[in-house]
Amino acid sequence: MPAGSIQEGLSQAKEIIGKYPREQRFLLAALQDIQKEYNYLPREALALVQEHFAVPLSRLYSMATFYKALALKPKGKFVIKVCDGTACHIRGSTLLVEELQRLLKIGPGETTPDGKFSMETVNCLGSCAIAPVMVINDQYYGRVTTAAVGKILEDLEAKE
C-alpha cells in the first residue's frame, strides 16, 4: 500500500484512539472500537495505540491474542458465527459447521480467499431457546437446519 493510503486508512483509528484518555483502563475499549471499524486490528493502528497509551507492543499483542473479540487478521465481509453453546450443540450445531465447511470450503476461524465469508464457532450467544443459532453480521438466524444454510448463503450472495 502506498504511504498515503495507509495514512488515510488510519484517520479513523486516530479518531477512535483520540476519544480515550491516556489511561490503561481504556485500552480494551479502544482496541474493540478499532476492531469494529476495520474488522481486525491493523498493525499500523496497533502502533498508534501503543504510542497513545504508552504500553509495550508485547502487552498489546498479548491482549489481542487473549480476547476472542479481537483479531489480528482481516475477517470476511460476512462473518458467520455458528453458536456452539450447549443447547445448540445438542441440537446439532456441528452439522451446521460441517455444512458450511462443505459449501464454503473453509473451516472455523478461516476466511474465503475472495474475502467474502469468514466462519467462526462461538460460545453461547444466549439464544438457546431458538437453537441452533447462527449470527451473520449481527443478524440472528434461529432454528437453522442444514438445508437452510445453503439458502442463507445464497441470499447473502444475492445481496452483494
Partner: peptide, 9 residues
C-alpha cells in the same frame, strides 16, 4: 524491556 509476553490462552 517488555520484549516477550504470553500469547493466546
Amino acid at each position: 524491556i517488555y520484549a516477550i509476553s504470553t500469547v493466546n490462552r
